[in-house]
C-alpha cells in the first residue's frame, strides 16, 4: 500500500466521519456555547483535511489555506465568546 493510498483510503474517511460526528453535536447541541465549540472543532478538523489533501495532491500551497483556517477558528471563537459574555450584562 503506497502512502497516497493510505492517506486517501484510510485517513481522509476517518477525518470525514469525525466531521460528521461533530456536525451531529452542532445540530443537537443544547446551548449556543456547545455550538460554538463544535464549530471550532469542525474548522480545526478542516485544517487536518486540507493538510492531507496537500499531501495527496503534492501542492504545498494548500498549507496557506490551512493557516487562514486556523486564524478564522480562533477569531470566531473569541468573537462569539465576547458577544456571549457582553449580551446579558446591563451596562
Amino acid at each position: 500500500m503506497s502512502t497516497n493510498d493510505f492517506l486517501y483510503l484510510i485517513i481522509l474517511p476517518v477525518l470525514s466521519i469525525s466531521v460528521l460526528l461533530v456536525f451531529i453535536r452542532f445540530i443537537i447541541g443544547p446551548g449556543i456555547s456547545d455550538r460554538v465549540v463544535a464549530l471550532d472543532l469542525m474548522i480545526t478538523i478542516g485544517i487536518a483535511i486540507i493538510t492531507v489533501v496537500a499531501m495527496v495532491s503534492e501542492k504545498s500551497s494548500f498549507l496557506d489555506i490551512a493557516m487562514i483556517f486556523a486564524l478564522i477558528a480562533f477569531l470566531g471563537t473569541i468573537a462569539f465568546s465576547f458577544y456571549l459574555e457582553k449580551r446579558n450584562r446591563d451596562d
Partner: peptide
C-alpha cells in the same frame, strides 16, 4: 479560545 468560551 477554550478559556474564553468556558468563561463566557
Amino acid at each position: 479560545g477554550a478559556h474564553m468560551i468556558g468563561r463566557a
